[in-house]
Design a protein around this nucleic acid. Sequence first.
DNA 1: TATGAATGAGAATTCATTCAT
DNA 2: TATGAATGAATTCTCATTCAT
Lengths: 216, 216, 216, 216
Amino acid sequence: MPKAKAAPEETRTRDADRSQQTILLAARDEFAQYGLAGARVDRVAERAGLNKRLIYYYFSSKDELFLAVLEAAYADIRAAEQQLHLADMPPAQAIRRLTEFTWEYYLAHPEFLTLLNSENLEHGRHLENSTRARKTNLPLIETLAEILERGRREGVFRGGIDAMQLYVSIAGMAYFYLNNKHTLSAIFGRDLMTPKALQERLSHMSDVILGYVLRN
Amino acid sequence: MPKAKAAPEETRTRDADRSQQTILLAARDEFAQYGLAGARVDRVAERAGLNKRLIYYYFSSKDELFLAVLEAAYADIRAAEQQLHLADMPPAQAIRRLTEFTWEYYLAHPEFLTLLNSENLEHGRHLENSTRARKTNLPLIETLAEILERGRREGVFRGGIDAMQLYVSIAGMAYFYLNNKHTLSAIFGRDLMTPKALQERLSHMSDVILGYVLRN
Amino acid sequence: MPKAKAAPEETRTRDADRSQQTILLAARDEFAQYGLAGARVDRVAERAGLNKRLIYYYFSSKDELFLAVLEAAYADIRAAEQQLHLADMPPAQAIRRLTEFTWEYYLAHPEFLTLLNSENLEHGRHLENSTRARKTNLPLIETLAEILERGRREGVFRGGIDAMQLYVSIAGMAYFYLNNKHTLSAIFGRDLMTPKALQERLSHMSDVILGYVLRN
Amino acid sequence: MPKAKAAPEETRTRDADRSQQTILLAARDEFAQYGLAGARVDRVAERAGLNKRLIYYYFSSKDELFLAVLEAAYADIRAAEQQLHLADMPPAQAIRRLTEFTWEYYLAHPEFLTLLNSENLEHGRHLENSTRARKTNLPLIETLAEILERGRREGVFRGGIDAMQLYVSIAGMAYFYLNNKHTLSAIFGRDLMTPKALQERLSHMSDVILGYVLRN
DNA sequence: TATGAATGAGAATTCATTCAT
DNA sequence: TATGAATGAATTCTCATTCAT
């Protein structure tokens, strides 16, 4: 970006960007906490400390705001995954790392889980029209497929593992535990969120996944 | 239709029961489709073909109606699980059967997944006060623990497997796939609900779970 | 209407009807005063002394409410026209009477003019789907055509007069004066609504119309 | 585009005038299409291709903008009437020409009709404070009065015709047909805007008006 | 002269719930 | 047991207008 003479444009732009970003974060929290239907535009404005009208100024509608939040959430997790540089690790370590990462990311970003739920409750209608989401997500599966193939060639992994299936299993084992922690706690009468319980869960997940991919 | 005025108490009771049941089923579908916040009492009445006021007569409030639906959903799945008679099977077959059952039940009862999501979005506040739910759910874990122990004793299962962890893993692998089918389809550009895809998923799940529990 | 045993139904029905009627009248005044876009549902409720929600309960939307008002307005004027029994008068008297009636009705019902304006501003989109309006309005033109034909046969009227054209001319001469009285007054600096001015206008109209239809 | 900084005053003025004119035309169309209450300042800016703030810079408020549009509309029609040079024609021809002109002007300028309606819906409150409107409008009636008097003196017109009444009648016959074409079409199930229909209407109008003013 | 950002007051519409019978 | 009528408090979205540059 070239510097402008009097920089007013930059300032203005920065304010607009900041406002949009503020709204986006506030909306993410609101949607995460209450779901799409339960979220209130008023509360988003409050959280953001900005005028409600501004939300419509930048995002047109509650639905478009939700889509923006969703796309950002996908972009965030995929960006974090990229940082792992799984392709540079030995296969087994890469799978273990991905399992840990998934667990830790879901743990640190509970909003991601509920956003997914909201979108699926609505049959994915927001994402349907979003090419952005597909683009951000496909690379992960490709990377995972390469790792699995590498492991197989090196003789450490069993063959015939579908990358998507494996990814869904890793994600699902983390997701169910964290997403449904309240009902599970209520049912089993046991706090699932103590450090020890969390450690045990990750340990179990790794055992299951590694036990599956490793040859014998 | 029996005449109301002179109807014996039994008949009236039966009518009342039928109305409640009708409302409950209608509510289940409504909550499943729209979530707790998105559900509309008006639509429940419409679905039930009954007056809206009657819903309040029987269930007091939207929240209590939701709790009733939720409790019924848990009761249903646990009842179905009881029918499996897992305790009477050889351990490995029991685990395989439980995996299949979980998958098939979620597939046949998508409402169960979204009801769980709704309740967890609200931090399980309805279930908190429900002793009924805990009672219906604990037996499954106990049965599973017995199976695992039996398998260990017979030398077919590895030791140290936590029943709840295993159950959560089985459920999670099915749940994530089915609950998030819309976003997954959008992202991977692949229909996850074809008979072939469904078959593959169950096959994968069984491989992972059996691979984990079986010794060596 | 047969009397019901306990009359509760009738009472209920009557209340509902009364509420709808009250809303309709309030809405007529509001739409007449402010136009469709300028009308406020809140104010309609206030005028009616009823809960705003009830307006939606009975009329679904502002637009449907407007349509109901419009249809009622047409029904009213045509009913009044029917009362004239023009068909029973000598032709010249019938035309004079219709002219007077039109003038007086517009004078007594200024809301009719502004309702028409609102509907035409919207390209008649409400009426488009209303078969009711056409049915109520056609008879007038038919009656007028018969009168013209009768007058022609009796030798008092000139031939070749189109009933619709004549009706539009009569209506137009009254309409423009009354509908635009404020701008005309501002422009001509002359109060057009004094009894004398009104009398002169009707007199002029009758002269023009009778001068036209009468043979020579 | 001249450079803004160094632009001579004349250029700037010309730009400013052009902007104002652009806004005025855009506003005229917007007010004509949606009425005063239904018009949107945002849409005016869009139509004009100019920033919304500029509208306030030049016209202060929506109401003042409407007044400016209204005054321009009156100025336009009166200017066109001046071009007719009715005073130079034989009386009967002048009346016929005025009738044709009124019809054709309303036909070509439907916005004039709806602007009038809007202003009258608001009881002419914008025009009240506008001396400009009165000034532009009075001459027409004076000219018409002179023509009527000339016709009477020449023995071709009947006496005692009020110029304003006649003008209102001519205008009204055109106005009602064109302003209410949508409701009339809906009601009579007949397209009033075909070339033939338009021709017939003008012919009818001329017959009525000439039939009235001509002696005998 | 020109413009993008921001806002308070309101607008139509919705919703869970209660009233009255 | 059943139901149509009624309501207060939201809820999403809109609009004329102003700010800041």
